[in-house]
Structure formats: C-alpha cells, structure tokens
Design a protein around this nucleic acid. Structure first.
Length: 471
DNA sequence: TCTGGGGTCCTAGGACCC
DNA sequence: TCTGGGGTCCTAGGACCC
C-alpha cells in the first residue's frame, strides 16, 4: 500500500515561542541567539528580509539590530522544550503513528487516514450523497465529487489530504499559538520537499501526492535543498551534471552511488516514491552524549578548566542517568579560539573506563585526569568538551570484585549506594533547579560560564517566572 | 570585545586473527 | 627468509541533520 507522510514543521520555532508570551513582538523583527549569545539560530521573516542569515555572529549585525530595533533573545531551552511538547501532544490527535523528529518537527503517517479517504472517494463516485453526513461529522470540507472518474481518485485523495493538513495547522495554532507548515507526500524525503514549498510559498500546506504537482516541485528544487544532501554532496552532484531533484530522481543509481555513496542512492529512491525511511515511532537508544561548550571568557588556568570539566561531567552523567545508561568510554577535548590571531592549540584524549559508569564522581575523576593529560600552559582556551560513548544499560554493568566483597555494612553493596546518592541529587536538582546541589569540583565562581544576556522568562516551567496578566 | 551545540550514520584504514 | 587472503572489530574523520 502506498504510504502517505505529512511533515509538520514549526515556523521559525524559537522566535515563535518568544512571541507566544510576548505578543508585542508580532510587529517587530526578532532573532534568537545560540548558546553563549554567539550567533543567530532562529529569525522571523522580517529579520530574514533584512538579510540576517542563520549562523551569523551577533557582533557582525550589531548596527542592523540597532537601526531596525530588532528584538534579541538568548536561547531559552526550558521554554522551547515545553512548547515543543505541547505541539507534539496536539499532533497525536491527527495520526495513529507519529515520529518526533526534532524539537520542532514531526512526521505523521497519514496512510490510515488516506485509505479511509480512499473508500470515501470510491463511495463518492458511486453515490455522492451517501458520504456527506460522514464528512460533515468529521468537519472535513465537502469536496466537489460530481463526475469524478476512477483515474481522478488519487487527485481526489491529494485534495483531501490537503484539507486534512489545513485542519492540523489551524488546530496547532489555536491550541499552542505556534504556526506550522505542513508538507504531504508519499515518502519522507518528498514530504520534506513539500514542506519547504509550503514555507517558501507561504501557503502553509502543500501536498505533492499527485503526479503533476510532484514533477513541478522536483523541477524547482535544487539538489542542495534535498534532505540528506548537504553542500559537499551537492557540489559533487553538480559536477556530474545533476542540478535539480528531478534530475537526481532520473539519474543512474550506480553513478550516484559512486559520487556520493549509499545516502545518495536512498535519496534517489525516495524521490521516485519508494520509501526507504520508515517512521521511527520510538526514540532510538542514544549512541553517545556530549557536552561541548564555548566559554563566556577565555580560560588560561588549569584550575578553572578543571572546574569546567567537572561541571560538564556532571551534566553528561545526569543525562546518562535519565536514560538509565552508563558510559564505558570518555573523550575530553580542548581548543583555543580559532578566530583569533594567537597561538593555537587543539588536543583530545580518549579514556577507556575500567567499569562503565554514570556516577558523577567517577566520571569527574576520569575527566580531570584526561584534562591534565592534554593541558598545555600558555594558551587561552575557548572551548572544552566531554563526550561519553560505549553506552550500555546501567543495570547490566559489569562490576568489579570489590563491589561485591568489600562492601561494608548492611547488605547494600557499593553500587547500590552510589545509585541512591545520585537519585537523591537528581531529584533535588529537578525540583529546585539544576545546579542546586553540585560537587565542589565544579567550583562556585564559574568565570567560564556561557553568556545569556537576553533570556526571556521561563514562562511555563518556573513558578517565579509565570506570565502576569494585567487588568 | 563578541563566531553554537548536540546528535546520527557511513567509510576507510589499521590491528588482529585464522 | 620468502610467501597470502579474507574476515572482524575498532576508530577517526567526514558528511549530514536540526
């Protein structure tokens, strides 16, 4: 059976989130910055028109910001994460199967819906009046069905899918205040293309489930705008004369394989309507986790770096515990500011842990050891990262002999005591704000802490910061 | 002065084993 | 001393995504 996917994507998500609780922003250009207030990661249409591109550092557009009174925000992930959840919950009403693809995107499987449309369509041909009550009950627009021929059924379904998309869009806007765009097609890659067109054209919903619209869409899509084809692959494809999605679809598979590998072949098939990427309804188990951040101020001393690495290790191990995982390998990397004209240094070290762990003191200990091994005196460091890999389920960790025989009192072994301690810390930090309880190794001054000078309130997740309604 | 962060997957090459 | 090939596993690096 032919599948039908809808990709629902929030428009300028971070900016839209800021606007939900601050309606005055509706008439102003708005941008949201990355961590450390470094560069632009989300912008509204008006900011776009002013020529602001994603990724541009804030200092380069300072004059523009002043001249046009652009509203500037630091990232407020507590707010965005919460609104994202509301959008996703709303979407679950519209499809039996759904994949949350990122903080602002979800794929829906509309196949179930369309097959019932299919039956409706057949009924509509046979006796138009019989389906009307059902359609009215489901609040769907009444299609013009008079004289519909069988070959027109797919067109009819596309039409219905479009109306369904409209309904999703209106509902999400009403329930959450977030505007979305929707692309509908028979594979995920095509749904992405449709979604892009919905955004560019401002139509909100675009369905390319039927042949004519599909061909036009592909002809107007450049290869670098295809999902999974980035700048480098696009360059390679253009070199062999493939410029548009339509040309890629009709290209020789073997040639594409040679040029950009297996990913390219999948793209070709998906463009042909052969689905290679299915809906992943359950979140897959993570392969690793990393905390890699830029400092607010450059850091020279080993003492301060140790505090930073201890802080990052605590964050990373908390993530592991949340997912009930333990890491068996750790990589610490340290780099200077590549944009500055000063001595450069970059190094990293990978440590195999004797026992997989998610216990903060263990990981901190190894992280500091690793840091000491790669640290060099005389540089101004700008970035530090810790990456944990070789993840295994925490309850299957191979413990060492001491854990069993040396465990002192009670019958509680060392591992259990460690787990209990972490649970207490995590609970306190969840309820009273992250960082309420932390290890001394993390320090208290944190001069390296990232900047966040323009953060809005955590309207939905913090009692002290609820929006206030004025009479 | 000020240039993000957190992921996934694929591939090539080396080490090691039989 | 010379002489091979094929398989697996691991890792680093590159490409991509949002």
């Amino acid at each position: 059976m032919t599948k039908l996917f809808a990709l629902v994507d929030c428009n300028n998500f971070y900016v839209s989130c800021e606007r939900v609780f601050n309606p005055k922003l509706e008439n102003r250009p708005v941008i949201v910055l990355s961590n450390n207030d470094g560069c632009v990661v989300s912008k509204c249409d008006r900011a776009k028109q002013l020529g602001i591109k994603t990724g541009v550092p804030l200092f380069k557009i300072k004059p523009l910001v002043q001249e046009h009174k652009i509203a500037v925000f630091s990232s407020n992930y507590a707010l965005y994460g919460d609104l994202s959840q509301r959008v996703m919950e709303t979407l679950t009403n519209f499809a039996s199967e759904m994949e949350v693809y990122s903080i602002d995107e979800a794929f829906l499987d509309l196949s179930g819906c369309i097959s019932s449309f299919d039956r409706d369509a057949q009924k509509a041909v046979d006796s138009p009046l019989s389906i009307l009550p059902e359609w009215i009950k489901r609040d769907l627009p009444i299609p013009i069905v008079r004289g519909l021929k069988t070959e027109a059924l797919s067109e009819f379904c596309a039409e219905v899918a479009f109306s369904y998309g409209e309904k999703i869009r209106t509902t999400v806007q009403q329930w959450t205040g977030i505007p979305v765009s929707i692309g509908i097609a028979t594979t995920k890659t095509l749904a992405k293309i449709a979604n892009r067109m919905a955004k560019i054209s401002g139509q909100g919903v675009v369905s390319i489930a039927n042949k004519t619209e599909l061909e036009t869409a592909l002809a107007h899509t450049m290869v670098n705008d295809i999902w999974g084809i980035g700048r480098n692959y696009a360059r390679e494809l253009i070199e062999v004369g493939i410029h548009t999605a339509l040309e890629l679809r009709d290209a020789n598979e073997e040639l594409v394989r040679q040029v950009i590998g297996i990913q390219g072949v999948r793209a070709v098939l998906e463009l042909r309507g052969i689905s290679c990427f299915s809906l992943e309804c359950l979140p897959s188990q993570r392969q690793g986790t990393q905390v890699f951040r830029t400092f607010g101020e450059p850091v020279k001393s080993l003492a301060e770096l140790k505090e930073a690495v201890a802080t990052y290790a605590a964050i990373a191990s908390e993530k592991l515990r949340r997912d009930r995982l333990a890491a068996s390998q750790m990589t610490i990397s340290l780099i200077t500011n590549q944009f500055k004209d000063e001595p450069q240094y970059r190094n990293s070290i990978t440590i195999k842990l004797p026992i997989a762990s998610n216990y903060t003191p263990d990981l901190t200990h190894h992280a500091i050891e690793g840091l000491e091994a790669i640290f060099e005196q005389g540089y101004s460091f700008k970035k530090l990262g810790i990456s944990l890999s070789g993840l295994v389920p925490a309850n299957q960790v191979q413990t060492d002999l001491f854990d069993r025989f040396e465990s002192g009192f009670d019958h509680v072994d060392r591992q259990t005591r460690k787990n209990q301690l972490m649970q207490v810390i995590d609970r306190i930090n969840t309820h009273m704000g992250s960082g309420t309880l932390k290890y001394a190794a993390s320090g208290t001054q944190a001069p390296w802490k990232a900047k966040s000078d323009h953060r809005s309130q955590r309207y939905t997740t913090n009692w002290q910061e609820l929006p206030i309604a004025k009479a």
